[in-house]
Nucleic acid binder design. Structure first.
Lengths: 240, 240
DNA sequence: GCCGATTTGTCCGTATGTATC
DNA sequence: CGATACATACGGACAAATCGG
């Protein structure tokens, strides 16, 4: 992030997460931050607004900006960001392995068009993969990619990282991801492919992903072992 | 929302949801919106940024701002906003009834302090309620309120709307809400109090709520019937 | 391939309003 | 009442990306 407001955001975030500004304390005032970073107050305000939206601070009119981040907050699957399985593995320090179950092409039916949001009749590449965390099968990933935008997915690419392929090799930028969470009874495929232990249900994340042209190029269903899944978001009462 | 940027946000949102700017179309350019609303481009940009963050549009540098909202998106429990049970009931058009199961005071133990984020030793009011949608018990709500900030919760208040009491009678403003979503096996209380049908698990939302002073005054566990729960959020790859 | 028009992205300096202390 | 701090808004400047001629 090379923008000034982004640098200020990251610097403050580091200090908050590092405990320099503990829970319930106040960060420096706008005027002080302006001087510190030698920039205009609008730029500072933009950084503070980001922190607010991510749930780290709470500005109080006439008083200051209070830190409301608790270090104890577990961040299993991050606070609302876009993250790949590999990134999550590194951050949470577990060994990540991906097994490709199937890989092939499909034509989008009318029913699937309604469910996925893909145009009816488009050619999509369907990938089904199992994610292992420290040797246990924890996630069943079902991805569909618009073949026109993400061509030539090989078993090798699928086993490594499709996102690395998309962003690296293809040079496409992933921008927006809309996600829906729900819980479902386990199906036969879940029971057969995942190490569910005593559980007979899964946490499901349905995902619509857009590139920087605003075109939806991916539809995904991730079916998670319930014990190894949680997701955190922040909601604000007023729009900012 | 009386701020100019908020009015522009709402006007554009209406038009997008109403189909005036369909999926994949472009909204008017900054310059056109400036003229239309007789305001500066920074004000327009702020409104557009809100729409972007909520997942309605995608700005493309040099081209325009593309709509990426699909009308088919179901919005069961809203797109990341803060909403009360009553508001959700009205929006989704079901009959909402609340039954108070228990109501009393507790002192925050060391273990509960760690789980909830309340200071150890504080006095909290504990409310347990069942939410009925069209006559069926669908949600088990367990709330804890800092008694110092939310005093005198009566059974009548709990059966009506605690939020209405907090925001109306007490005049406290609810600002930030941090939520964690997960799925759990049903416990005895879930089975006894909810109409779970053939399900033996629940979707759980853990909630930390802050007022406009940045003080956490509420901790909640909402345990939902899996079939009547879904939650949608938007994630952006880059901070804005 | 280059240039210019259009459009979004970042940033500044200033002014005014509102809330707190 | 004045000083401080956040909130909204303006108008201008320049950068970066896109697109058509």
């Amino acid at each position: 992030m090379k923008a000034v407001y982004g640098q200020i955001y990251e610097a403050l975030l580091d200090q908050i997460q590092g405990g320099d500004y503990p829970y319930q304390s106040f960060i420096p005032s706008e005027a002080e931050l302006c001087e510190l970073y030698a920039c205009s107050h609008n730029t500072v305000r933009r950084a503070v607004r980001l922190l607010t939206q991510e749930g780290y601070v709470q500005p109080i009119n006439g008083k200051g900006v209070r830190v409301i981040y608790l270090p104890s907050e577990r961040e299993d699957f991050s606070m609302g960001g876009i993250e790949t399985f590999k990134e999550a593995a590194r951050r949470n320090n577990f060994e990540a392995v991906t097994k490709v179950v199937s890989l092939g092409h499909e034509m989008v039916s009318k029913a699937f068009a309604l469910e996925s949001g893909f145009p009816e009749g488009s050619d999509v590449t369907h990938v089904e993969r199992v994610r292992l965390m420290d040797g246990r099968a924890r996630i069943l990933d079902r991805n569909w990619y618009l073949t026109g935008l993400v061509p030539d997915i090989t078993p090798e690419v699928a086993a490594d990282s499709i996102y690395a392929y998309i962003e690296g090799t293809l040079g496409m930028r992933v921008t927006t991801s809309k996600r829906t969470f729900l819980a479902e009874k386990a199906r036969r495929a879940d029971r057969e492919l995942l190490d569910l232990g005593g559980y007979d249900f899964v946490a499901v994340v349905v995902n619509h992903t857009f590139n920087d042209d605003g075109v939806m190029f991916e539809y995904t269903q991730s079916r998670h072992h319930p014990e190894h899944f949680s997701f955190t978001t922040v909601a604000l009462r007023d729009q900012r």
